[in-house]
Nucleic acid binder design. Structure first.
Lengths: 116, 116
DNA sequence: CAATTGGTTCAAGAACTATTGAACATTGCG
DNA sequence: CGCAATGTTCAATAGTTCTTGAACCAATTG
């Protein structure tokens, strides 16, 4: 439980899984929030998303985001720090993440995303 | 059954629904094939996708693609002609469809898409 | 009119998804 | 050590999704 969970390699990242991950409003909000944070520190920990859902439900969504290659988890003490796998995604699917993030930003109200 | 089915307006197109639609391999293949066809005629009918799945299953996926605003169906005699709602999607989510199509093209083998 | 073509509808089933809460594990701190 | 904080795991559940086949409908053709 204290070890770094498994992540897919860059090459293992699959388009349908990524799109499916991004199609869930909670996960989209997580990704959006991570992207916003990038300007500042590039990492956030689980607790920073407590506004989006309950803890165990977040764990579930984090796992999906990790499994599809969208984000990476780093274990540090009692915290898990997350960051977007921007470079890997850009390498596999150029322009995709940005297009999704821009689209999300456009609909921030409708999607109830917090615009930092 | 012979009437034109309902379509969402441009403004009603929702990001999560679009992403969810594109996350299914069969639907992604349909969209990809429609995009390929655009160079030629911009429309295809149901039968052109018979290689992807059975007829009734295709009807199901067509409905999803219609309901989320990705494509439009036009009834003509005994045929239904489909086309991508490129302009509406570009207006709502600039660059998104192209990014997805490019990503799909990159993984055409993996996704078993037929590259015209 | 009868048969064919192109596609839809409906019902059923298997599989998967998201959500919840309770119990648990690990780390850090007084 | 004892306790709080941070997350995870597990089981249960409600709901959704995809797939299939059989029956059906509407338009065209002979």
């Amino acid at each position: 439980m204290s070890r770094t969970p498994p992540h897919p390699t860059r090459e293992q990242i699959e388009l349908p899984l990524v799109l499916d991950c991004l199609s869930d409003p909670i996960r989209l909000a997580i990704v959006y929030q991570l992207a916003q944070q990038e300007r500042v520190s590039s990492e956030l920990c689980c607790g920073d998303f407590n506004g989006l859902s309950g803890k165990s439900n977040l764990t579930y969504h984090f796992a999906k985001l990790r499994d599809c290659g969208l984000m990476q988890t780093r274990v540090a003490g009692t915290n898990r720090f997350m960051r977007l796998r921007r470079e890997d995604l850009e390498a596999r699917f150029p322009g995709l993440l940005d297009a999704v993030l821009k689209s999300a930003a456009k609909d921030a109200d409708r999607l109830q995303l917090l615009s930092t």
